[in-house]
Design a protein around this nucleic acid. Structure first.
Lengths: 188, 188
DNA sequence: CTAATGTTCTATCACTCTATAGAATTTCAC
DNA sequence: GTGAAATTCTATAGAGTGATAGAACATTAG
């Protein structure tokens, strides 16, 4: 599944089947023993990119940890997926819209499921009193995903990034923000 | 400059010069009266995408507003650029890596300048005591940019999004996080 | 060894692509 | 109107594209 590296580097339309074959050490025509079409190859790369962190989210959401632990686990899982599957995740993020309808909507369902489960985690955080009642859980979930993807991009480009450090800083930002706490703070 | 719409929809390599010409209402060959090459057209679209918010950042950073106002102005400027120049900004974000070396590095310089100015704003926030002393200004600046880009993507796809609402929620997240303030909070 | 299966190769088809050249047309100042 | 400049056209070169077909080679089971 090393087509991922080519798609990640050159984009779907910028990658010729000859490029992909060369990376695999075979000739262009031989590709079609494995793939029915170039689009099918893209679909498999995209699915490979997200399936692991989507799957891990199932476990996190279903577990009985407190809110903070679930949030930390989510961010850690998302970011470390960028370490383990960086090319495929980049391809998923940037190229999935070039997939044929049917396959794209299947992936979109996985993405929506992930986001809804994350929203559920934030709901739990509100119910348990850890989060402010005013928190918009849809906004919060999108913010987490956006933040993880942005840092994921940076992790992909710079392999020296300390993922553990970034994870902690992201969670700290999400919980506490950057501002100093004032003495006049409204307390529940 | 309506090539932006085509690049945004189909990507650089996925857009043929015929596609672009058709959108402009002219024939394919006529494009080359305006552009020396397809890559040059991409370069102009990308520059158009960011030049405004990069320029506005100059003013924000140089102004003598307090930290919170600068942060709000930055987020508002970044997000509203996604309203005004959504296609070009999407192209800048997704396709700029396909530009030839020289032009790509020029754009990278603008991006780095933007980030450094934002880091400076966070430094100011620390000095004025608004931000916690432990804040990592590089992390903070990347987080702001990542958050704005993520919400920018959503704004592009859904024109009904309330940009003002998102701006406020982003700033609230960046300053205060989602967590309830505890009575036992460490105060300076 | 034989036969079957799995894998890769070569060769090719039918298109599409960017870019160029030069003719045709439009626009506009005088 | 006349001539010059700006703009758009047609036609084409030359290279690259994804996909297919069938031959060639490799691997394994009996």
């Amino acid at each position: 599944m090393s087509a991922a590296a080519v798609f990640a580097e050159k984009g779907f339309h910028g990658s010729s089947t000859r490029d992909i074959a060369e990376r695999l050490g075979i000739k262009q025509g031989s590709l079609y023993y494995y793939f029915k079409s170039k689009e099918e190859a893209l679909g498999e790369v995209c699915l490979f990119g997200i399936e692991e962190y989507v799957h891990r989210m199932q476990d996190i959401a279903a577990s009985d940890q407190p809110f903070e632990a679930k949030l930390m686990a989510t961010v850690a899982s998302h970011l470390s997926s960028y370490r383990e599957r960086n090319e495929a995740l980049k391809v998923y993020n940037d190229e999935r819209l070039y997939l044929p309808e049917e396959r794209r909507t299947r992936l979109k369902q996985l993405g929506s499921q992930y986001r809804r489960q994350l929203e559920g985690i934030f709901e739990q955080g509100k119910e348990s009193g850890v989060l402010r009642p005013s928190v918009d859980c849809h906004f919060a979930a999108q913010a987490v995903i956006g933040l993880c993807n942005a840092w994921g991009d940076i992790i992909v480009r710079d392999p020296d990034t300390n993922v553990f450090d970034i994870t902690q800083k992201c969670v700290d930002l999400l919980l506490n923000g950057f501002a100093e706490r004032r003495k006049t703070t409204r307390t529940q």
